[in-house]
């Protein structure tokens, strides 16, 4: 049997009386594209932080890339990549400098950095812009670049937090091509999004409501289960009953 990338059992995070994440359980296969959806404030970010080794769960168990989220956070961090819409790259460093910096953090050698840097710039067709400051690039390019940098060290799992927010429809699809390619290379992709059509591109999706996972299946099965036409309808059906919201 193939190793699971993420195993989560009754994972819970409590802040005082408030149960942000309430006993969520799921498994993600290696090489799977796993969509992690939910209404504002459903607990997505909190759950993702625990899986990335950034915060301790209150109770439950979880392993990420085979490592325990309670006592092997450092090992988890070495085996994952992370990218979010808010923080991606340093705007006042050039493309190559960003690659060198983030690659360097994960301990890539100078030779690897040079090879990877060239390869990355070539695949993204950024040869002309390689020495430009990242801040000067259009948003869509930045996001594609940020993703490529997030997987530069070939992590086992990459976490993407709303990676395509505000990006134009063509670039959004190019971004998903990159995600597919990473999945083909065996990288497990864990992604959140507000675009419901993107939910369809995932192998399986989970939908969080009020700290719980209320639905988890392939997009086709979910639509069948809720007898809905689109993922949008499925989401609406589930999230409509949400009691709480974000911040």
């Amino acid at each position: 049997m193939e190793e699971k990338a993420i195993i989560c059992k009754d994972l819970t995070k409590q802040f005082g009386d408030f149960v942000a994440v309430n006993k969520i359980s799921f498994e993600v296969d290696s090489g799977e594209i796993f969509g992690f959806l939910g209404a504002n404030g459903a607990g997505k970010t909190t759950a993702m932080r625990m899986l990335c080794g950034l915060s301790f769960p209150s109770s439950g168990e979880a392993t990420v890339a085979g490592f325990n989220v309670f006592n092997q956070q450092e090992k988890i961090k070495r085996n994952i990549g992370y990218m979010s819409q808010k923080f991606s790259l340093y705007e006042n460093l050039s493309i190559l400098e960003n690659i060198e910096f983030f690659g360097g953090i994960y301990g890539l050698s100078d030779r690897q950095l040079k090879e990877k840097g060239e390869e990355l710039v070539n695949t993204l067709r950024l040869q002309k812009e390689a020495k430009k400051m990242v801040g000067e690039l259009p948003l869509g390019w930045k996001q594609k670049l940020a993703f490529s940098v997030a997987i530069i060290h070939k992590p086992k799992i990459v976490f993407l937090d709303e990676p395509t927010g505000g990006v134009d429809p063509i670039t959004r699809r190019q971004f998903w091509d990159l995600i597919y390619k990473a999945a083909d290379d065996g990288i497990t992709v864990f992604v959140t999004t507000h675009y419901m059509d993107e939910a369809e591109y995932c192998n399986r999706i989970s939908i969080m409501v009020d700290g719980r996972i209320d639905a988890l299946d392939t997009p086709t099965n979910l639509k069948k289960q809720f007898s809905a036409e689109t993922m949008n309808d499925v989401f609406y059906e589930l999230a409509r009953g949400a009691k709480r919201s974000d911040n």
């Binding site: 505000g166 507000h194 609406y236 999230a239």
Partner: peptide, 10 residues
């Protein structure tokens, strides 16, 4: 409606 979930958007 940017950054707002599908239910609130509707």
């Amino acid at each position: 409606t940017t950054g707002v979930d599908a239910v609130s958007r509707k």
